[in-house]
Design a protein around this nucleic acid. Structure first.
Lengths: 207, 207
DNA sequence: GTTATCTTGCACACTGATGTGCACATTACG
DNA sequence: CGTAATGTGCACATCAGTGTGCAAGATAAC
């Protein structure tokens, strides 16, 4: 009665489905199961062997993605809220492939709740950042901290989902936009990014 | 063979359907024909008497809304690009009821093209504004004019569609956000709005 | 090489939505 | 009032998508 180990191809296929779903749903959040399965090189029937439901597939996608995000949020420890925000935006941007689905699914009425729950840690990070930024005078204070945090989230989602991730300078644009929203003048943001070039292009550290 | 004049109730019902569609689709861009018809107090069958198609209904919705928008864009004639942008944002915001559908439909893959075409004049206005703002040094110059214009559009759409239009200060938030995106520091935006309170609250002119 | 595990195609039942035809009732218009 | 124009309910055909059952074939694990 000793259960056999799961087959290698099976495990790969499951991962393949998640990849395909990530890519496909980023463009069209309501792509059919068939399209997803085909784009993973599998049959629709097989997909149902790996996931009970469309729901199940999407929930897993969200959960896995959210973990990634929350991990990134936790990894940003800069004292200066301006730098922290910039770095957070840049790191999330590097995860573009993963971010886009999240951005698309976050608007889907059916998954709003799950997404919100899964991203709670990230949201807390942003909220704390907004508060700190206001306290030390580097962020705008014409909006309540909560409002500012919300605004940052929404604009981040927009920039991520409505920008061609491949285009050059996209990460730069995203970071600058968020700093503007936080209340920095564009010159200030510009100066900040000149002083810390590694934020946008991590490879430049040693250059 | 002389055709009779169209019945009054018929005309009213047609308008009622458009209203209902505007309200319903703003929340859920893929609401069914049945839901729209019912919410207009009519039967699904009747709706098909007024519009050939779901397509036809939506296209008319977009066309009518776009005319409104373009009209507003044309009405903003301030010399100062900062004030022009603020006023444009505020006026569009007052049209919240109409704006929300447009914002929702603009993302719908099936109608992107039509929406884009219909809103071309508004888009041109924004583009010109971005250019002028950069030339006279009041807007940011770290982004190309075209990029800035695009960014303004996208953020505007986000703010409009993701804000509770009824909440107090929502218009204020929208205007401030767009000025930030344009490159103004929040203090500058704050000062601008203090100097021109009529931008956000047109009733205050005589107060 | 056996065998359990996977994949596949096909048929099927089900659902929600679209668009149409038609007969009947209702109502505004002249 | 008479009539054309509208609204309504119902049946129907169609379509796309979901999820399941099953038998046959392929293949990785042991």
């Amino acid at each position: 009665m000793t259960t056999r180990a799961p087959r290698r191809d099976s495990v790969e296929n499951r991962a393949g489905i998640l990849d395909a779903a990530r890519i496909t749903l980023a463009t069209d959040p309501r792509a059919s199961i068939d399209v997803i399965a085909r784009s993973a090189g599998l049959s629709r029937r097989t997909l149902y062997g790996h996931f009970d439901d469309r729901e199940a597939l999407i929930r897993e996608l969200i959960s896995v993605g959210a973990q990634r995000f929350n991990g990134i949020a936790a990894s940003v420890t800069d004292e200066d809220p301006r730098i922290a925000l910039a770095r957070l935006a840049a790191r999330l941007w590097q995860e573009a492939a993963h971010v886009q689905v999240a951005a698309a699914l976050a608007l889907d009425e059916a998954h709003v709740q799950h997404t919100a729950d899964a991203l709670a840690p990230l949201r807390r990070t942003v909220a704390a950042l907004a508060r700190r930024g206001q306290e030390d005078g580097s962020f705008r204070t014409d909006l309540a901290a909560a409002t500012l945090a919300r605004l940052i989230e929404e604009v981040a989602r927009t920039v991520v989902s409505r920008t061609d991730a491949a285009s050059t300078g996209a990460a730069d644009l995203a970071v600058r936009t968020l700093l503007s929203i936080a209340g920095l003048s564009w010159r200030e943001a510009d100066e900040l990014l000149s002083t810390h070039p590694e934020i946008i292009d991590p490879q430049e550290v040693s250059a």
